[in-house]
Simulated assay, not measured.
Amino acid sequence: MPNSEKFAIVTGASTGIGYELAKRCAAEGYDLLIAADEQQIEQSAETLRAFGADVRAVEVDLATRDGVEKLYAAVGGRSIDVLIANAGRGLGRGFLDQDVKEATRVVDTNISGTLWLIHKVGNDMRGRNKGRILITGSIAGFMPGSFQAVYNGTKAFLNSFSFALREELKDTEVTVTCLMPGATETDFFRRADMLDTDVGTTEKDDPTKVADDGFNAMMRGDGDVVSGLKNKMQSAAANITPSSVLAGQHRKLSEPGTAKN
């Protein structure tokens, strides 16, 4: 049975930023439907129930249309107040050295699955003329991602898409916010096989702080938020720096073997 009139969906909620966003939702009195493609999602749900929320977990692959349909079916007809589209996947190494199936899965998770889910939920929200959507983009979307080329490309898409969708919905009560974090202390770099890189081994941002920045911006109805002063400066500089220079800078961070001891 629902414990609250407020209901939120959070994808990629098993760990990291997604889990922290789900935790913030639970603390704010939302019932939750959380999803991830790993069994850890069930343990995360159990922890979140301590806030008194009704929490349902779905282990599902959001890189597939069937996975999105399964998640949407789990809504059970409830009105969705908040959609946090956070599920994402990274992949390090040079593009030609990657398994192209894995590279394609990054696109399917970060872009295709996100679009399918937002299209479904967004139409529900527009029909009710009420709702908030938070999309996890990245400051990586501002720069060519040498040795992370596919991932950065997907984040550039999401950054752009979020502003376009926001403009399309500006005459409604549905808001769209893009959270743009920098490197954050999560399992991302291990999963992306980037623990031998500079960015994979240096100090990173706190996922709780990043999630709070994103949640607060969403509740204000802001168009975007770059979390952290250093990241704000980096994203601002990227807007006036030639792409060839940015690609070289990114190489120093993400090329295998650049890890500092």
Results as ranks from 00 to 15, higher is better:
residue 6 K to N: 13
residue 6 K to H: 13
residue 8 A to E: 02
residue 9 I to G: 05
residue 16 G to K: 08
residue 17 I to C: 04
residue 18 G to R: 03
residue 20 E to F: 11
residue 21 L to I: 02
residue 24 R to P: 06
residue 25 C to V: 05
residue 26 A to I: 06
residue 28 E to G: 11
residue 30 Y to G: 04
residue 32 L to Y: 12
residue 32 L to V: 04
residue 32 L to P: 12
residue 32 L to S: 09
residue 33 L to G: 08
residue 35 A to S: 13
residue 37 D to W: 12
residue 38 E to C: 14
residue 40 Q to E: 15
residue 41 I to W: 05
residue 45 A to D: 11
residue 46 E to A: 14
residue 49 R to P: 06
residue 50 A to I: 12
residue 57 A to M: 07
residue 57 A to F: 04
residue 62 L to W: 07
residue 63 A to V: 06
residue 67 G to T: 07
residue 70 K to L: 10
residue 72 Y to K: 08
residue 75 V to Q: 03
residue 75 V to E: 03
residue 78 R to I: 11
residue 79 S to I: 15
residue 82 V to K: 09
residue 83 L to R: 05
residue 83 L to W: 07
residue 84 I to G: 10
residue 84 I to T: 07
residue 88 G to V: 10
residue 89 R to C: 09
residue 90 G to F: 10
residue 91 L to C: 06
residue 91 L to D: 03
residue 93 R to Y: 12
residue 95 F to M: 14
residue 99 D to C: 09
residue 103 A to P: 03
residue 105 R to Q: 13
residue 105 R to C: 03
residue 108 D to T: 07
residue 109 T to L: 10
residue 109 T to A: 08
residue 112 S to N: 13
residue 114 T to W: 00
residue 114 T to N: 09
residue 114 T to M: 13
residue 118 I to F: 01
residue 123 N to L: 05
residue 124 D to K: 01
residue 125 M to P: 02
residue 128 R to G: 00
residue 130 K to I: 01
residue 131 G to S: 01
residue 131 G to P: 01
residue 133 I to R: 00
residue 138 S to Q: 05
residue 138 S to Y: 02
residue 139 I to R: 07
residue 140 A to I: 06
residue 141 G to S: 02
residue 141 G to T: 05
residue 142 F to H: 12
residue 143 M to D: 11
residue 146 S to P: 01
residue 146 S to I: 07
residue 147 F to D: 11
residue 149 A to Y: 06
residue 149 A to V: 12
residue 151 Y to H: 12
residue 155 K to D: 10
residue 155 K to C: 09
residue 156 A to T: 10
residue 159 N to V: 04
residue 159 N to A: 02
residue 159 N to W: 00
residue 161 F to D: 01
residue 164 A to G: 14
residue 165 L to S: 01
residue 165 L to C: 01
residue 166 R to K: 05
residue 166 R to D: 00
residue 167 E to A: 14
residue 170 K to S: 06
residue 172 T to Q: 00
residue 173 E to D: 13
residue 176 V to S: 02
residue 176 V to P: 01
residue 180 M to V: 12
residue 181 P to W: 06
residue 182 G to C: 04
residue 182 G to V: 02
residue 183 A to R: 03
residue 187 D to R: 13
residue 187 D to L: 09
residue 190 R to V: 04
residue 190 R to Y: 02
residue 191 R to H: 11
residue 192 A to T: 06
residue 195 L to D: 10
residue 198 D to N: 15
residue 199 V to M: 15
residue 202 T to Q: 14
residue 206 D to W: 08
residue 207 P to V: 07
residue 209 K to G: 01
residue 211 A to I: 07
residue 213 D to R: 04
residue 214 G to H: 05
residue 218 M to G: 03
residue 220 R to H: 11
residue 227 S to H: 02
residue 227 S to T: 03
residue 227 S to M: 02
residue 238 A to S: 12
residue 241 T to Q: 04
residue 247 A to V: 09
residue 247 A to I: 11
residue 248 G to Y: 08
residue 251 R to I: 07
residue 252 K to L: 13
residue 252 K to R: 15
residue 254 S to D: 09
residue 258 T to S: 12
